[in-house]
Amino acid sequence: MEPIVKYEDVHKSFGDLEVLKGIDLNIAPAEKVALIGPSGSGKTTIIRLLMTLEKPTSGYIEVDGDPLWHKEVNGKLVPADEKHLREVRGKIGMVFQHFNLFPHMTILKNCTVAPINVLGMDKEEAEQRAVEMLEKVGLADKLEAYPSQLSGGQKQRVAMARALVMRPKVMLFDEVTSALDPELVGEVLEVIREIAEEGEMAMILVTHEMDFARDVADRVVFLDNGVIAEQGKPKDILENPQSERLQSFLERFRTSSSS
């Protein structure tokens, strides 16, 4: 099957600092991939490139058969313009570490503003779909509330509903639980698990929750120092790490998370 997302030799530098040193990664439709690795390993950068929040220094990214940062003109690849980016970007959705809800809008409005203005959906249909998604994340009773009235866990669930309403083919999760109080992590992970079980969307999850990664992901990718150091089935990667780096990373994790 054709991959839905394809990275070919992707590099990214911030000034002198090279964060990604040649990434090759294919993701199949409906595949769930967990990206793990120490901080600074480049895992968040990988998905920010896909969401077009950062521009790759070099390399090629493809989404659903279309080049993302390039477009074809007379059989040649030239840098993409905003129009092209908007076309391809429509297939991707993202949930952020710090939620990034729009504070000046109600929960319902947060979930309808994009479908109405970006997809050109009429208001009724957008609201219907938004309510459906908010039901899925268990917040259909908060339609008229403002983000400031919600807990962190609730905010993050709204953020998921907001992204889901757009029906992306690929959904990106950027450490979505790391800004939450520990007791709120569970409710958010539960919602992600449900979305994953529906199965139709590809998902890339940057996460520090190893148990969760094992449960949800079809594949775990370990990033270290800007390259993919190891990848495979969750069981193999997490229980039988090959490289010393991964062993010590997981070891550190166990000790720090059990404390």
Binding site: M51, T52, I92, G93, N100, F102, V113, N117, M166
Partner: peptide, 11 residues
């Protein structure tokens, strides 16, 4: 983050 969320929603 507001700019980023707006980009992610393809505005």
């Amino acid at each position: 983050g507001q700019w980023e969320a707006a980009t992610a929603l393809n505005f």
